[in-house]
Write a protein that binds this DNA or RNA. Structure first.
Lengths: 188, 188, 188, 188
DNA sequence: TATGAATGAGTATTCATTCAT
DNA sequence: CATGAATGAATACTCATTCAT
């Protein structure tokens, strides 16, 4: 009599706990003990699902960038590229307030990318998809593909940079206003 | 009988070693042992100059942002704000190739800022000075102070974002071209 | 509704798997997980048949020495004690090639005997029966019982020692020839 | 507090403690914690001298067989091979009472030899030197080299086997008497 | 000022064992 | 009978930090 497969509930449970603990203590500073406690599981149970801490970190890193890519699907239809981006920025900005605390982990993932091949691969893929999506949006609006690629890079850089400043200032900054103003300027 | 103060030669020696080791292994991953070996000193000698690892990390963080602020003094005189920024970007871009490897540590410092008060303070100061300098440059060119503050934030965000993309792509990107093109667009 | 008793098939299945795993990884190094996998059972199933790992080890130890005692029953009838021993050595030697790999576990059992009362008991019994059987064989040939006891001890020691050397040399040695030559010399 | 002992004194200190603990708990059962405590050092200090537990075990194994080889140098001069061996047996027998408890570890080393290449190498070397020394003694007494090699193997086997029985019987056996009687028989 | 030697306080990882199903 | 899932209790190994010299 096979029992139900608990993996599908344990894995989000563990990842969610890990995200919380990693955000609070940093990737290296986080203890498996605390992840387990936060997940309401024994430490050994974590190792049932992740071979070791590195595997857990990588799984979280994947989830982090995958979640960010998900946000690209929220880009709405609309008249102009500028309009569509500005509407999207509002959506993203609202969502940002939520996961703000966890965002700092993103910086550690970027640092990891400088040292770990797997991490670098994920980061690269993420920015490539991100830029592609923005470029497509510009092409939809009539921009030449070659121009769109460059402009998309500027836009992505601007948004990531604003995000960086926003984090640096502990969220004490109007992300949406600055982003919309910047994007509008870049596209005018 | 006073002994010679070796601080002026030991401190750069240690910081330089620490920078190398931190870049290679990450801030938390770096071992005092390795810093000492890299510096050609005994581990205990490090403790003569830095109370503990945290102090060393903070000193390095200070140095990191101070060095970046130094770059602001390189902003040249010139006709328009756009011209001056573009000339400056060329200078910065050339310098960047050098310390590329160490830049990843910057991300860890940003992550630290999310958790450590001292780190946050330094990061905040850095971005405030950075934005002020850019804003001043815009005011010099005739922009209204209130507009200049906003525009400076956009420019700083853009440049930091491009830097981030540049790191993420392991330097495989034309930093200067993209930065100049973006800044020009923002200021047109 | 009584269910069929599977003990008679499970127990050899488990012991045989355990023997394999113990031989490969050592008694302490062997994991119940691996024994279970080797036996094609779940780990918990092992515990249905053996209270704990110690019980399994002891069962294996018993089997090990019992199997060695079985060999004593193979001592053939014959003319002289020397003849009978030499014939027997040939039989034992042929069998040794088989279980060679598992023999290393024997050393661990001897080591255990130095620390564990139960193990010591089994080992003592084994050598007592071993020596008795050989002594009886000598008495059958006309030797005085008191002389036979001593001579049997020498013979057992010699054979065990040759076995030891044979193991130490990874089987790269003519066990039978050396054993027969030695026994003949002891009895001449 | 006086300055601690010099490092070259630490190694015998650690090995001696390890021998004690390993004898009591077995090689795998021994905890580094206990070795440290027995040595009067911190656990970390052990790791200053031995990379890991395996390295410590191997060092002990080396010492074990090296010490046994040392005993070969005690073989005295004398008239006949038999005389020399009997005199030597008396010496060895007296020494055995001392390290009796540690001898059980020898069985574990033999078991290790079945699984670990380094261990096997050491064991092989040991028995080769052991047999060579005995063979030389026989040649000194006029035996043909080819006969001596075989006879030496029998003698070594006998002595190791008696040692094995002696351990199995917890020392409750007259090692020297049996050994001398056996060797005399083998050489008559 | 400088260091070799030492350690206390962790931390990741493992594994025998249990139990609900 | 049988097992997938879970865990408590261990244990090897690490590292920032100290201190006698």
């Amino acid at each position: 009599m096979p029992r139900p497969d608990r993996s599908h509930e344990r894995i989000p449970q563990i990842l969610s706990a890990a995200a919380k603990v990693f955000a609070a203590d940093g990737v290296q500073g986080a203890r498996m003990d605390d992840v387990a406690k936060e997940a309401g599981l024994s430490k050994a149970a974590i190792y049932l699902y992740y071979k070791n801490k590195d595997a857990l970190v990588l799984a979280l890193l994947e989830q982090f960038f995958a979640a960010n890519l998900e946000a690209l699907k929220l880009i709405p239809q609309g008249n102009s590229a500028t309009d569509r981006l500005c509407l999207w920025i509002d959506l993203v900005s609202a969502a940002m307030q939520q996961g703000a605390h966890f965002q700092t982990v993103g910086f550690e993932f970027l640092a990891m990318a400088g040292r770990d091949t797997d991490a670098r691969q994920k980061v690269l893929e993420f920015y490539q998809e991100y830029q592609s999506a923005i470029a497509q949006l510009l092409v939809d609006d009539g921009m030449l593909p070659s121009d769109a690629a460059n402009k998309a890079q500027e836009i992505v850089a601007l948004l990531e940079g604003i995000n960086l400043l926003w984090m640096a200032q502990s969220g004490d900054m109007d992300f949406a206003r600055l982003a919309k103003s910047g994007v509008t300027a870049l596209l005018s």
